[in-house]
Nucleic acid binder design. Structure first.
Length: 472
RNA sequence: GGCGACAUAGCCAAGUGGUAAGGCAGUGGUCUGCAAAACCGCGAUCCGCGGGUUCGAAUCCCGCUGUCGCCUCCA
């Protein structure tokens, strides 16, 4: 059973074959760090984290590169507004983003290159393009890529050069031979950070960084290049043009693009201002919630984000976690054990089939929910011991492939724990004495404080829900 | 205007030729002093609308309507 991946370049789903056996190279476009990152950025990182985890679980060695754009017009403008140094501002947002990725249980990439630290490779890349006559320096100190010189330009976004509206305009100060051409290098303007180059002081255009970083950190040819589908044009189109013009080889063999996160029916974006930052989200919800939200639908489709959906997602996680509660019975084998074992084996196979189908995480989750039911059923039947624990271990293992932690609030570490337990003891006495009104009153008042009591056959358990958000 | 996606039950959503996964919500039941949790049962005769191809279509083709993305910075 082969892993199938949808490739934007071919618009088809095809079996994945790595360029080098047993190894996968992935380059994912990261954010421009000029403001707080929002959960749309997190969605993209989560999608490719799942891809990465599934490859690793399947036995591949993964080389995973994510860049930071830390030299950019918006960074410079923002820094000037705030009277800060542009590089310091970018570094600060990049550091925060890395911390948030960790908080979201996203595995660290193999490398996080930045424009500012890749300058020699970028300059060399541009020089190479000029030598190949794919690019030309302009009198004003800019360097442009010759789009019309690139025969297959437009193959990723399926655009015809002559249909492009943007082709009709040249911005003030530009010095292009052709309006379609885009900047590889921009001559320095007063008050901007600038680097030395054969064409004078200046800084790179946006697209060249990813071509240079990918070549530098990975290889001329890579397996997968990823990013949001808003990057297909012009960013990824231009990356292909640059890299393939320089190397003469095809660049990424598979192009993967995630859909946009939709807030109130629109793409969440910094320029629209309709955003929920990662920080805001994590103040109210656990990392698993955002991940589950992403996993529930196809990574390629737009993701609906509303308060209702978030609330539903919280419940889904509780449902998954319900299977991780301890056994309550004392049966180690029998019919319950046998049927659980069957479901465990089925789940493992079905999970792989689902993920092999272009990382169909929604279908993969469905298999986990079936396992949850089987585990709970076996617990109700009194199963405990090795088979029961193996079922739970499988659930944890497969959930971890998706990056779900499935950790509850650390109840035992709550400062209130001894007092809650004391109340439960007292209430047990009240129940023995059939003092139902008082016993219910204790339960209701604790519930109002965020402590949920559940009376089971082997005593009362409790969960702390909202005493604190910091526990997340 | 050009290019590209998408439209499945109250909500989210999988499913790309063989007769509709899963979750949430709702609802009936088992269990419980009650409740909660868990478990069992119930929900689209139908997949935006209209045509067509096919023995057979949510799935393929054409048209229409609607939503979204890109064409300028964007995960």
């Amino acid at each position: 059973m082969a892993l199938m991946i949808y490739n934007t370049l071919t618009r088809q789903t095809a079996p994945f074959e790595p360029l080098k056996p047993g190894e996968v190279s992935i380059y994912v476009c990261g954010p421009t760090v000029y403001a707080d990152s929002h959960i749309g950025h997190a969605m993209s990182a989560l999608v490719f984290d799942v891809v990465r985890r599934y490859f690793e679980w399947s036995g591949y060695r993964v080389r995973h590169v994510m860049n930071f754009t830390d030299v950019d017009d918006k960074i410079i403008r923002r820094a000037n507004e705030q009277g800060r140094d542009p590089m310091e501002l970018a570094d600060s947002y990049a550091t925060t983003f890395l911390e948030q990725l960790a908080a979201l249980n996203i595995l660290p990439a193999t490398a996080y290159p930045r424009v500012s630290t890749t300058m020699p490779q970028i300059v060399a890349f541009i020089e190479g393009l000029i030598v190949k006559e794919a690019a030309y320096p302009a009198p004003n100190g800019d360097v442009y890529f010759s789009v019309r010189g690139d025969a297959d330009y437009g193959k990723l976004s399926r655009r015809d050069i002559d249909d492009m509206r943007s082709g009709s305009r040249i911005a003030p100060g530009e010095d292009k031979d052709d309006p379609l051409d885009f900047a590889l290098w921009k001559a320095a303007k007063p008050g901007e950070p600038a680097w030395d180059s054969p064409w004078g002081k200046g800084r790179p255009g946006w697209h060249i960084e990813c071509s240079a970083m990918s070549l530098h950190e990975l290889d001329a040819q890579i397996d997968i290049h990823g990013g949001g589908n808003d990057l297909i044009f012009p960013h990824h189109e231009n990356e292909i043009a640059q890299t393939e013009s320089l190397t003469g080889q095809s660049f990424a063999q598979v192009w993967m693009h995630n859909g946009m996160l939709q807030l109130a029916g629109e793409k969440m974006s910094k320029s629209l201002g309709n955003l929920v930052t990662i920080e805001e989200f994590l103040q109210h919800h656990s990392a698993d919630v955002l991940r589950m939200l992403v996993l529930t639908s196809s990574y390629r489709a737009p993701l609906t984000y509303t308060a209702d959906v978030v609330a539903d997602t919280e419940r889904k996680i509780e449902r998954l976690m319900s299977a991780l509660r301890p056994a309550t019975g004392g049966l180690a084998e029998g019919a319950a054990a046998d049927s659980l074992s069957v479901v465990v084996a089925k789940t493992r196979a079905a999970f792989r089939v689902a993920m092999d189908d272009d990382f169909n995480s929604a279908a993969a989750l469905a298999t986990l929910f079936e396992l949850v039911r089987a585990i709970n059923t076996s617990r109700d039947a009194g199963l405990s011991g090795a088979t029961f624990e193996a079922g739970q271990a499988t659930l944890r293992e497969l959930a971890a492939v998706l990056g779900l932690r499935l950790e509850g609030a650390p109840v035992s570490q709550t400062a209130a724990a001894p007092f809650i337990e004391l109340l439960i003891e007292l209430r047990a006495d009240l129940r023995l004495a059939k003092q139902w009104a008082l016993a219910d009153s204790v339960r209701n008042k604790l519930a109002a404080l965020g402590v949920t009591l559940e009376d089971g056959p082997n005593g009362t358990t409790y969960e702390v829900k909202k005493l604190t958000n910091q526990a997340e």
